[in-house]
Structure formats: structure tokens, C-alpha cells
Write a protein that binds this DNA or RNA. Structure first.
Lengths: 128, 128
DNA sequence: ATAAATGCAAACCTTTTGCACCCTA
DNA sequence: TAGGGTGCAAAAGGTTTGCATTTAT
């Protein structure tokens, strides 16, 4: 179905090579072009959507309404720093039993959940 | 500082009169105009922002990137139905101790959190 | 050869803003 | 009567789409 295009591989590789970061389409567009790998913004958007459909990457909608993409689509929580506004992946706190607990409390089937923690990240904490 | 304008009261009252619902600016714009209360969309947006700054209402960014507004800004969770995509307020599951638990696990100060549960709402469950 | 992918520009959607006019304290 | 507030239309973001061209299989 899909062909292997160099642009799609650039985009995916770019994400894997920056672990822990969360990118907007614009970030990836700018990052690749700086490396001399010319891609159009439309292609970045199209491929991010394809990679997501293939479950190779995940995404997150920020309260600003901007979408950012994640290297992985494995279930995990996020920490958003209230100082620098960076987004971090957090595996340690991820707790599937929240869903069972909610099911019991609400008496409704719960399939998944999304938890965002707001606090101060390690970097910002160090700087003070 | 702020003056009482009839438009602002219409908007706020409209939200209070539809408890449990979550509105986009467009929803409120359309709803009020249907009632013969003419408001411009720009005024709806401006006033929703003001009401939010005054902590009279809350808001939530959906994964679609659309912002919806909530009658209250008291901390609570949300249930999003994976069938009808309606958004529900959920107080029963809200658990501030998640923040203390995360603080211990991450060793970082956590100020707040946001939990969205994805499942089947009571209405959709009934229909099957 | 042909189905898929790309680049470009135009279109879209939601939200914000500038400005002239209006209204409320 | 002054400083908010409103409506309108234009602008601003971010994302998607149409179309002609290029590329992988």
C-alpha cells in the first residue's frame, strides 16, 4: 500500500533521533530543512498522519490548540512544566488501574485514559 | 473594571441553563442567535475569555483542536464517549491524591492534573 | 506502467484583532 | 463623558486539499 519515500523516513528518523522531545509539524519541517533535507510542510503533515495511522508515533493536543507528536504511541502520562512549558513523557506514573477504578465508580465501560500532570520539571527546578 | 453588558450576561446565562453540556464558541453564538439574542461571534469569543479570566467558567481542549467551555472551573475529570464523542463532567473520580503520588514517584513538585476517561456513556450504553 | 508521494499554492477553520460606533457607570 | 463593550471585516495561526509532476515498485 504505502511506498517507502525518503521524506517519510527522514521524518520518522528525525523523531527517533530526538528522544523525549515533542514536535510540532513546523518543528520537524524546520529541523529537517536545517539539515539540508528539504521537505515541504504539507508533506510533513501528511506523513505524520500516516505514521500515526500505522501506530508508529503518537500525538498530543496542547491546551493552546497546537498538536505535538510523540516518538511512541505506547500508553504513558505527560508532565507539562508550568515554567518552561516543555512536555515530558512519564511512564512511572502510568496506571491502568485508574480505568478499573473509574469503571466501578461510574458503572460504565472505560477503554483508556489520558493523564497530564502540571508541575515544575527537573531542569527548571535546578535553576532555582 | 468590567461593565455589565447584556451580551456577557446572555452568554453566561446560556451556559448555566444548559448544565452538563460543553460548548464551543460557535455553539453559543448559534444558540443565542436562535433565541433572538443577537451577538457577534467575536463578542462570544471575547466574553468567554473574560469569563474564564474571572474564573466563572472553565475550558477544555479536545483532541480535535477545538476548544469547549465548561459551566464551572472547579477541578474535575472528564469522560469522553468513544461512540457519540460527547463530553461529560465527572466529579466522582477526581482524585487530588494522584498529584501527591506523582510527586513521590517523580520527585518533582506537581501543582495540578487533568484526567480524561474514554469510554461509553450511559446514553450510548442504553441504546445497545 | 501505475499507484503513491511530493511540492506548491490555495482553501479551510477556528480564533484574534483593528477600528469606528455605542452604551453604561 | 470616558472607558469599556459591540459588530464587522480583515488578519492570523495551524492544518488540509487540489493538482500537476515526480518517484518507487
Amino acid at each position: 500500500m504505502y511506498k517507502i519515500s525518503k521524506q517519510r523516513e527522514w521524518i520518522y528518523t528525525y523523531m527517533l533521533e530526538h528522544p523525549g522531545q515533542h514536535f510540532s509539524a513546523e518543528d520537524i519541517f524546520a529541523g529537517l530543512n536545517e539539515m539540508g533535507k528539504t521537505v515541504s510542510l504539507a508533506t510533513v503533515y501528511r506523513n505524520l498522519k500516516i505514521l500515526q495511522n500505522e501506530h508508529r508515533i503518537g500525538s498530543l493536543m496542547l491546551t493552546s490548540g497546537k498538536q505535538v507528536f510523540d516518538q511512541t504511541c505506547r500508553p504513558h502520562d505527560h508532565l507539562i512544566c508550568t515554567h518552561c512549558h516543555r512536555v515530558y513523557d512519564v511512564d512511572m506514573t502510568y496506571d491502568r488501574s485508574l480505568e478499573r477504578k473509574a469503571e466501578n465508580q461510574l458503572q460504565l465501560p472505560i477503554e483508556s485514559h489520558s493523564l497530564i500532570l502540571y508541575g515544575i520539571c527537573a531542569d527548571c527546578l535546578k535553576e532555582r
